[in-house]
């Protein structure tokens, strides 16, 4: 029976993806919404009203999407009379600031963690999907330990606080405690729409997204974000470009 397990593993071989050192595509993934050319009908706010978390806003006859809040549910796509909004397959959603989504700024001291990054994951009030995707990072397919990324149970050993779920009132203080217990330099990653912007829950039932409680370095939108999207966000912290070794 011992040999069974050994041989099974050997026969299966290496199944880990090489991402982020190669390009990956997810053909069926409901990813980042893109706004097509054209203009909205006068006074049409269908997408804005259909969006539960309030990610879409119509400004200057154009829908503007706050990707941090977006659930990638596709409601806006289905109600738009002109079909301007389409959900693409793009999964690399990580951003470092909600104001200027194009910016991908490497945090200060980020290069220190290029080869080794320890993550303390805290479940704020996650439904469970983002948590499972985070846990999937350690399965043989994604295997982040090949990138020098590890999970630790003690915040004292951690460099990154990875939060999933909106911050409930009950978890606001424990989350803060976990942050205080980490020695500097430290970073905060808000993974998932709920952590990034409060999701469909919002105030006053919850405190809101993680950035209401503490400064966030990387937001990874998605509901839940694909493990590859999580890897994309984490490599941002270490300042690693895609083709670097």
């Amino acid at each position: 029976m011992f040999y069974d397990w050994v041989f099974k593993g050997l026969r299966k071989g290496v199944v880990s993806t090489a991402y982020p050192y190669n390009e990956q595509e997810l053909p069926n993934y409901r990813g980042l919404p893109a706004v097509g050319p054209g203009s909205c009908p006068d006074g049409c706010r269908e997408c804005e009203q259909a969006c539960l978390p309030g990610a879409v806003q119509v400004r200057d006859a154009t829908p503007v999407i706050d990707t941090a809040l977006c659930l990638f549910c596709g409601e806006c796509q289905s109600v738009c009379p002109r079909g301007r909004i389409t959900l693409t397959n793009a999964f690399e959603t990580a951003i470092t600031s909600r104001q200027t989504t194009a910016a991908k700024v490497v945090p200060r001291d980020g290069r220190l963690f290029a080869k080794s990054l320890y993550i303390r994951h805290v479940d704020a009030a996650c439904c469970g999907a983002c948590l499972r995707e985070t846990a999937s990072l350690n399965n043989p397919f994604y295997d982040v330990s090949r990138l020098g990324i590890f999970f630790t149970a003690s915040p004292r050993h951690a460099d990154v606080l990875l939060v999933t779920g909106p911050v409930s009132w009950g978890m606001r203080d424990p989350l803060r405690e976990a942050y205080e217990a980490m020695p500097g330099p430290k970073f905060v990653v808000a993974a998932g729409a709920c952590a990034a912007g409060g999701g469909p829950f919002g105030q006053p039932a919850t405190v809101g997204g993680v950035d209401v409680v503490m400064p966030v370095d990387v937001y990874i939108p998605g509901c839940p974000p694909h493990p590859l999207a999580l890897i994309d966000g984490l490599r941002l912290l270490g300042g690693r470009a895609r083709k670097e070794v």
Binding site: H121, V122, D123, A124, A125, C126, G128, L131, R132, T134, A135, F151, T152, A153, P155, G170, M171, P174, L175, E177, A178
Partner: peptide, 11 residues
Amino acid sequence: LGPVRGDYNEA
């Protein structure tokens, strides 16, 4: 075992 538990456990 506080609300913040070990690796990927719910709170």
